[in-house]
Design a protein around this nucleic acid. Structure first.
Lengths: 217, 217
DNA sequence: AACGTGTCAACTGTCGACAGTTGGCAGTTT
DNA sequence: AAACTGCCAACTGTCGACAGTTGACACGTT
């Protein structure tokens, strides 16, 4: 029952985790460069494993590589956001359809729980935390039981987080999102794949528009 | 007007191209291991760049990494094929929809050209070459003008090629595929996004089933 | 004979150092 | 003063070598 991977993650693996965190939290701001020797010293490792970590993050879209120049944290144009959300929509609509036809009862309970917690948070005056939004989509993906789609959604979500630099949602948008989530759960509960896809598409369309406006202002 | 990337691709980049070719053509058969020192010597490079190439191909799904064991060419189970085609369906159906609404006239001509060449080849008694099937889907993706979706489709197509170990299509399937392609082009020509998605889904469902049967026999 | 144990070779993970390239700066020219 | 040229520092790309881990084989035990 012991995990097949060693408890000691390789240095490269550890570096991936640390760097990913720093990039996603904005600790390494978009547009900035990642100096190999500097970061390697800071992490206490050699350049070899760090390079592998950098390449890995680049393959996830969290860094862009320029030959002989190094790795940069990408900053997004509205056009990028639009194109990225086309991919996200394709993936998550398919996931919504699959979830509607494959969900178990415990999947349904989990989805409802996340929605309920969102409402509680919102009613308590606190803003709808992005954490719960991620949790909802994550739960939905698991209910779809399609490992390849799940993996790709994870990567896209990450890139969305990266672009989401301190995007403080306004309450109307939060309310609409929660309504979308509720409607999605109902469609999935009914096993209505077509409606689940439609609602997901509308939801993501709204989120995308909101991100673009909050990006351009 | 000089290209921004150096004509000298980095050694790692060259190694990626060579290895990708060898994996996709089956020169390195599925299930076999990639020995770092051996391959590095064969390519005349050091282990550093080769390791980066291996990690890159692993991120594309063309190799699987096992800690302290090395890189292996994955061999697929029917379940993998099914899951992979769920992802492919999500991506290519979305691409078909987008292509239907965004295609230009030259896109349409290109699609029709590929279909016509397929027919010519088929009538000439030659088997429907997989090359033309790839060309069709590639052209369709370009017509969709969605860079992120295009990139993901490219990666999925590669993995499909990898699984397609000497899959000699039988003529009935080839004929059905060409009919699907023709119908897709008509739907795209009409700008009928919904029908394009439906046809694409049916087409990929057929291809998936064909691959699984030819894999299990 | 089957099982458990100890040893070993092969390979991956990691490191430090060298070579080649890039962008910027100082100096010179017009 | 503006533009061009040559040089330089910084950084990436690459290499060879060392250390740690893994799987397998041989040996001894029950």
């Amino acid at each position: 029952m012991t995990p097949p991977v060693p408890l000691h993650l390789s240095l490269a693996g550890q570096a991936v985790d640390v760097l990913r965190e720093q990039v996603l939290t904005g600790e390494i701001p978009p547009g900035s460069r990642v100096n190999e020797v500097e970061v390697a010293q800071k992490l206490g490792i050699s350049r070899g494993p760090l390079r592998e970590a950098i390449r890995h993050l680049a393959s996830e879209g969290l860094l862009t590589l320029v030959p002989h120049r190094g790795a940069f944290v990408p900053d997004a144009s509205p056009e990028d956001v639009r194109a990225l959300f086309e991919l996200r929509t394709a993936l998550e609509c398919a996931a919504a359809e699959l979830a509607a036809s494959r969900r178990t009862d415990v999947d349904l309970v989990r989805l409802q729980d996340v929605c309920a917690e969102s409402r509680r948070n919102y009613r308590a005056g606190q803003p709808f935390p992005y954490r719960l939004d991620l949790a909802f989509h994550q739960t939905l993906i698991e209910a779809a039981r399609s490992p390849y789609i799940a993996e790709q959604v994870r990567l896209v979500q990450q890139r969305v987080v990266l672009l989401r630099s301190s995007l403080d949602d306004d309450p109307p948008h939060q309310h609409a999102s929660m309504d979308d989530h509720d409607e999605l759960v109902r469609a999935i509960a009914d096993g209505d794949a077509a409606r689940a896809a439609t609602v997901m598409r509308r939801h993501l369309s709204r989120v995308c528009a909101q991100m673009i406006t909050s990006l351009t202002r």
